[in-house]
């Protein structure tokens, strides 16, 4: 239900900025892009300014939408869990879900809608398999609180957390293909590409995936 972590007021950490730049780098110039949970439009602005894309957004909070419209962006107030159904097939080259998957009611349906609306999807999310999170839960026995997952369990909008391995599994479930995957550690450095999945899952603080629909033939 919640589309950006806190309606256009996502805590700006160094990692979220690096995440935006990384997501932006996966988008081809001049593409048609839909950013789902676009918050105050920072990624859309970045894409419009640096990659000359036709940028559209969906955002649940009125405040976020107002910010975006005031920046001249085309953003619709809406809920990822409900309103993606209104978009036609193949309307976009890329559908982006940046730091929002874990806050949706039905991540599988949201990802399926994204793969229907866009030729490609880009998803970035906090990895719940990171060693610091495992430490907090496994050793300290407490629900983890980190810089990027900063809410106490009883008030967090992040209701569907997953690990990088879990996400790779979901990609198979929705019949998509991974074109590119990046995991970043807490300082924003990318984990070596040839590192095994278990290492990504343990040391990656964020996962960023570029997906494509499986061609049915």
């Amino acid at each position: 239900m919640i589309m950006s972590q806190s309606g256009g007021e996502m805590p700006q950490t160094a990692l979220t900025r690096i995440d935006l730049l990384l997501v932006a780098s996966m988008v081809e110039h001049g593409a048609r892009v839909l950013d789902v949970g676009c918050g105050d439009g920072e990624l859309l602005r970045l894409l419009a300014d640096t990659r000359n894309v036709d940028a559209r957004g969906v955002e649940i909070s009125q405040k976020g939408v107002n910010h975006c419209v005031a920046k001249g962006l085309s953003v619709v107030q809406g809920d990822a869990d409900v309103d993606l159904a209104d978009y036609p097939d193949d309307g976009f080259d890329y559908v982006i879900l940046s730091q929002t998957l874990q806050a949706t009611r039905n991540p599988r349906k949201v990802l399926e809608q994204m793969m229907r609306i866009g030729k490609r999807a880009i998803v970035s999310f906090p990895n719940f398999g990171h060693w610091r999170i495992r430490w907090q839960l496994g050793v300290r026995g407490r629900m983890p609180i980190t810089e990027n997952l900063s809410y106490a369990w009883y008030e967090t909008p992040n209701i569907h957390l997953c690990t990088i391995k879990d996400f790779v599994n979901l990609v198979g479930v929705v019949d998509a293909r991974i074109l590119r995957a990046v995991a970043m550690n807490s300082s924003g450095a990318q984990i070596r590409v040839n590192a095994p999945w278990w290492a990504w899952n343990l040391f990656g603080e964020q996962g960023v995936f570029l997906l494509e629909r499986q061609t049915k033939d």
């Binding site: 036709d54 009125q62 939408v65 085309s74 619709v76 107030q77 809406g78 036609p88 309307g91």
Partner: peptide, 13 residues
């Protein structure tokens, strides 16, 4: 949206 027009939508409280 279906026609691909650039559209913004705001519901004012």
């Amino acid at each position: 949206n279906a026609g691909g027009a650039p559209v913004s939508f705001v519901e004012i409280e």
